[in-house]
């Protein structure tokens, strides 16, 4: 019983961070139907940025989101205009090729600057835990989950209650309609893409404290993000929170009760099971193109 509760707690805490990590990819998909595989590279890039800033200044790595998020916002914005805008005018698989290419470039650049060895950010609370009723709440996990909740709430409010959010949601719903009422669709797409990358930036800072990372970690995180947004429903922000929690719980339970070796298979199994059983995900619009047209 204690083991089960412990596994659930760890799963929930990690789920909060996963939700933030996947929210950016989900936002970008929801607005422009581009599966941005570059998110993986961006995430790791932000983790390395956090590492360097933390080493140089000694500031709390979780608070460094204040710096990494705007940095990645700029990176995302530039990426949109240089690569994404042209690739998405062709077809979906081309945009995939482009964004995968960008992840490779990011990995290469990171390896040139920081090398290929695993790094980790270890503030003094990294190995401490709160203990409540005999259950362990690792401090790093708790703080990271709180920061993730704050960032996600901010993102949600931005989308719901600002004109930028309104234009993003309107453009996601119908770009032709958006153009008609005077929304600058092109800059709205750029803004949504930049926001999505910025969310990965925030996520990168958090995960730098929780897990060791190296350039090739990007691939693992891409798989995880994909599984979360597929599970939750592509394009649905609340869905990605739910999907993240489910995946994190499943991983935590699998590694407790089956074997850590198979925990890595959880996201992929989840993708396949969801798409076979319920293609529209837990929340969110249908994925089947032919159904939406009928």
């Amino acid at each position: 019983m204690g083991t089960l509760l412990q596994a659930l707690i760890l799963g929930l805490l990690v789920g909060g961070v996963y939700a933030l990590v996947a929210s950016g990819m989900n936002l970008i998909f929801g607005v422009m139907q581009v599966v941005n595989l570059a998110q993986g590279g961006m995430l790791i890039l932000s983790a390395y940025l956090t590492y360097t800033l933390w080493e140089a200044t000694g500031l709390d790595p979780l608070l460094l989101v204040v710096i990494t998020t705007p940095c990645l916002l700029v990176v995302g914005w530039a990426t949109y205009y240089i690569f994404i805008e042209r690739s998405r005018t062709t077809d979906a698989s081309m945009a995939l090729v482009t964004t995968f290419g960008l992840t490779l470039v990011t990995k290469g650049v990171i390896a040139l600057i920081w090398g290929n060895e695993p790094r980790s950010v270890t503030p003094d609370y990294a190995n401490r835990s709160f203990s409540v009723l005999g259950l362990r709440f690792p401090q790093a996990q708790v703080y990271a989950c709180l920061v993730a909740a704050v960032v996600l709430t901010g993102l949600y409010l931005l989308l719901r209650h600002t004109w930028l959010g309104q234009s993003i949601r309107a453009t996601a719903s119908s770009s032709e309609g958006a153009r008609l009422i005077g929304i600058q669709v092109r800059s709205t797409w750029a803004a949504a893409f930049a926001l999505g990358v910025a969310a990965a930036g925030a996520g990168g800072s958090l995960l730098s404290v929780l897990y060791p990372f190296m350039p090739s970690s990007a691939d693992h995180w891409i798989g995880l993000m994909l599984s979360i947004i597929v599970l939750g429903g592509m394009g649905s922000l609340p869905g990605s929170v739910l999907g993240a929690v489910v995946i994190a719980l499943a991983e935590s339970l699998t590694s407790t009760y089956v074997s850590p070796d198979w925990a890595a298979a959880v996201p992929y199994l989840a993708i396949i099971l969801v798409l076979v059983a319920r293609p529209q995900g837990l929340l969110g619009a249908r994925l089947r193109e032919d159904m939406s047209r009928a």
Binding site: Q166, R169, A170, A172, S173, S174, E176, G177, A178, L180, A285
Partner: peptide, 16 residues
Amino acid sequence: QVPQHHGLFPSLTVRE
């Protein structure tokens, strides 16, 4: 302009 189709935002409310 009121267009032929695709003018509305289906996932937003009527008020929005």
